[in-house]
Simulated assay, not measured.
Amino acid sequence: MRLKFTKMHGLGNDFVMVDGITQRVKLSPEKVRQIADRHIGIGCDQLLLVEAPRDPEADFRYRIYNADGSEVENCGNGARCFARFVRDRRLTSKEHILVETAAGTLKLNIQGADQVSVDMGEPVLEPAKIPFEADIQAETYPLEVDGETYNIGAVSMGNPHAVLLVEDVLKAPVETLGAIIERHPRFPAKVNVGFLQIEARDRARLRVFERGVGETRACGTGACAAMVSARLRGLVDEELHITLPGGTLTIHWPGPGEPVTMTGPATAVYHGQIAL
Rank of each mutant, 00 (worst) to 15 (best):
M17D: 00
G147E: 04
E182M: 12
Q46T: 05
A204G: 05
I110C: 13
K129P: 02
N66M: 10
H96W: 06
A204P: 01
Q137S: 11
A36F: 10
Y150S: 09
G158F: 09
V72P: 04
G12K: 14
T221E: 00
F85A: 08
M1Q: 01
K4C: 11
T248I: 08
T22K: 07
E239L: 09
I42F: 01
Q115L: 13
N151I: 12
R84H: 10
P160T: 13
R211A: 12
E95M: 15
G272L: 09
A223K: 06
F132G: 01
S93I: 12
V193A: 05
Y62H: 10
E239I: 08
Q23K: 09
E73P: 02
D202V: 06
K4T: 02
R207K: 14
V213E: 04
L125W: 07
N74D: 07
G178Q: 15
D59V: 09
A113M: 13
A275W: 01
D88Y: 02
H241Y: 11
R89M: 07
E182Y: 07
A113V: 09
V169A: 11
L48M: 12
M1A: 15
A275F: 03
Y62G: 07
A79V: 11
Q23L: 08
G255R: 04
D68N: 00
V269F: 04
F187C: 04
N151K: 15
V99P: 08
T250P: 01
S229H: 10
E57S: 15
K4Y: 04
M262T: 07
E239N: 03
V174D: 11
N192G: 15
E258L: 04
I97F: 10
K26L: 14
G147P: 13
N151M: 12
E175R: 11
D68R: 04
L91N: 04
N74A: 15
H96I: 09
P265K: 02
V228K: 06
R80P: 02
A102R: 14
R84F: 09
Q34Y: 14
I274V: 15
N13H: 08
A83M: 04
E199I: 00
R217C: 02
I136S: 12
I242C: 05
A138F: 00
L177G: 06
V174M: 12
E175L: 10
D114C: 08
E71A: 10
G76F: 12
C224D: 04
Y141T: 02
G246R: 01
T267D: 11
K94S: 09
M120V: 05
V18A: 09
Q23S: 01
M8I: 05
A225N: 12
P256W: 01
Q111N: 13
G247R: 04
N74Y: 00
M157D: 01
T22D: 12
